[in-house]
Design a protein around this nucleic acid. Structure first.
Lengths: 159, 159
DNA sequence: ATGCAACCTCAACCTAGATTGAGGTCAAGC
DNA sequence: GCTTGACCTCAATCTAGGTTGAGGTTGCAT
């Protein structure tokens, strides 16, 4: 297990369990950079393994690439990040996760109330109220989980 | 407030707080049906208000349209669903939600362990382990939340 | 010095969940 | 009976997060 300091994209992909195409995609999105060989092939440092692994984990945790980029942008520029740097941003992400869990539990409780009260009877039900916008605007269940709520859409619902 | 029994798509859209285009989209996806006027315009029944509202709520709860369709398909066919029918599927959804919360909390705990153990040190870390596939395969954070885990992808990671 | 796997770019395609626009029809009020 | 807003279909576009393929280079081992 010789400590190889410079890796090709295929090598680093195998190391972190990502596809080559994803890594190029992340580069296009600004989450990672590579320097190039004389023939324009991407070359990575050992430290990039950690960076890519972090991306993978953060995705498992439900963060968008935008969010992940925001965290990564807080890493130091001049030197490779150390354990403390990583611990810092992991802690930040744990907090984000907590918020998402809280939001989900709150919603769960509301649903409970709705079921309990013989609800789904409209008008009185918070979940059924059209003015109670939450799921509009993007793909996926994201708003629900604690992200920005987009400004109310046109739905002129005067029921 | 006259009880109108038949509604146009614009009317029902306003009632439930959805856009007209979404409702057509849901129809294309098989979540709702309309009968048609002589001139091919969609006509909805009062009972469809509840159906569409349910779709909205279930989305807020983070279900995909596929999942929502699966629930709706369990409603009776011959008659309009009653309160008990709705209560039944709401309960089912509460259970799904619980699973998602559990999964999220478990992941949160794992992250905690990782931070605590001075982790992010690779090799030993469960979250950092490439073989620990979870976020691959589709869009969004969905697998994480307890959905099907897709079969392991090619990543030949023999680190 | 050559062969071939791995790399390069760029464009097209994919799913989910829609919105927007073009071009055309319906129906209700005056 | 005509105007006008609401409706119709169908195709294109969008975001997120990628994959796939075409067509063309690089670079390492023999």
């Amino acid at each position: 297990m010789q400590a190889k300091d410079v890796l090709s994209i295929g090598e680093i992909a195998a190391r972190v369990g990502l596809s080559v195409s994803s890594i190029r995609f992340y580069e296009a999105r600004g989450l990672i950079q590579a320097h190039r060989s004389a023939g324009q092939q991407r070359r990575y440092h050992r430290a990039d393994i950690r960076r890519l692994s972090f991306i993978r984990i953060a995705q498992q945790l439900g963060l968008t690439l935008e969010e992940i980029k925001a965290e990564l942008d807080r890493l130091p520029l001049g030197r490779p990040p150390n354990a403390r740097d990583w611990r810092g941003i992991s802690t930040a992400i744990a907090a984000t996760l907590d918020q998402k869990i809280q939001a989900l539990m709150k919603t769960r409780d509301r649903l409970d109330g709705c079921i309990g009260c013989g609800c789904l009877s409209l008008e009185t039900c918070a979940l059924f109220n059209p003015r109670d916008q939450a799921a509009k605007g993007g793909a996926g269940p994201r708003y629900l989980l604690g992200d920005d709520i987009p400004p109310a859409t046109k739905a002129s619902a005067h029921d």
